[in-house]
């Protein structure tokens, strides 16, 4: 048993963040899961009589320009937005992790060259980077995932590599080399388990970011294509009629905001709880 001497104050904050983040994240996941099973109306059912209606008991979030029920569309579109968030983050990790482990473990000239390249990529704002890629790939949901995933990978390289660098100085790595372990085992068997904390934190924050990026791409017409709807597409459609009625905007905007806030709070809370240093974004 050891006596922890860390001050108690941030613990309370991290707990509040974690709880709020978990609740919002769970709500976002539940919302999109519910969308598969049940929606009050068909998300594509057109009702030209009740176009751009205010919220009523029949339509809790009102209706859009074709009279479609906004709540049903928020529920049904959720999984597309979340898939974007998780997919892009997963892809970013899949690219970033191996690069970070290899450069952090081997160091030397290759590390220097790769990292200068990564620094160059990091100088481009992630969303602009994603836009550049999607211009090459063409619009679509899958393309948006690819673009956002590739665009967020340099960030993962940076953060994971610094954790790897610290861990690689530990004697258990030298001991593994002295045992004649394969370099891949040392990277994935010895180092990776010790760099998970910053990865999880960064990933959860990145899900929130990719949600927003995905919504932005969809809003620009480069992500999910109509008639399929995700929250970004809905915001795009709704904003054209914002001077007539802002109600259709409210549902998807709330859904996306709360999800992003949720993933961010979860990540921040986790970071405080795990006593990690600030992530790249705070620097």
């Amino acid at each position: 048993m050891t006596v922890e001497t860390s001050a108690a104050a941030p613990q309370g904050r991290s707990n509040r963040y974690l709880k709020a983040g978990l609740a919002l994240t769970a709500a976002a996941l539940a919302t999109s899961a519910l969308g598969f099973l049940y929606t009050p109306y068909s998300p594509t059912q057109v009702d030209l009589v009740h176009r751009l209606a205010r919220p009523t008991l029949d339509h809790l979030f009102g209706t859009d320009r074709f009279g479609r029920d906004v709540l049903s569309r928020v529920l049904a579109g959720g999984w597309r937005s979340l898939t974007l968030g998780f997919g892009a983050t997963g892809l970013g990790l899949a690219i970033g992790l191996p690069v970070a482990l290899a450069t952090g473990y081997f160091r030397g000239a290759v590390d220097q060259i790769v990292m200068r390249f990564v620094d160059a990529l990091l100088s481009i704002p992630t969303l602009v980077f994603a836009l550049l890629i999607i211009v090459g790939l063409g619009p679509g949901q899958l393309q948006a995932i690819l673009a956002l995933g590739v665009a967020s990978s340099p960030k993962f390289v940076r953060i994971v590599r610094s954790a790897v660098l610290a861990a690689a100085d530990e004697d258990y790595v030298t001991a593994a080399k002295a045992r004649g372990e394969h370099a891949l085992y040392i990277q994935y068997g010895e180092l990776l388990p010790n760099v998970w904390p910053p990865i999880i934190v960064e990933a959860s924050i990145n899900v929130g970011f990719a949600l927003m990026g995905g919504a932005a791409l969809s809003y620009l017409g480069l992500g999910t294509q109509p008639p399929f709807a995700d929250w970004g597409v809905m915001i795009n459609e709704a904003q054209q009629y914002i001077s007539v009625s802002f109600w259709p905007l409210l549902g998807p905007a709330l859904a996306i905001c709360l999800s992003i806030v949720g993933f961010n709070l979860f990540g921040e809370g986790l970071r405080d709880r795990l006593h990690l240093k600030a992530s790249l974004r705070d620097v």
Binding site: D171, Y172, A178, G180
Partner: peptide, 24 residues
Amino acid sequence: RLRRFRRNAQIVFQNPTSSLNPKK
């Protein structure tokens, strides 16, 4: 032969906290 040498020659470090992987 290197593999056999590595079985036959072992090392113990100063700091046991650093020489044991905390996740194992």
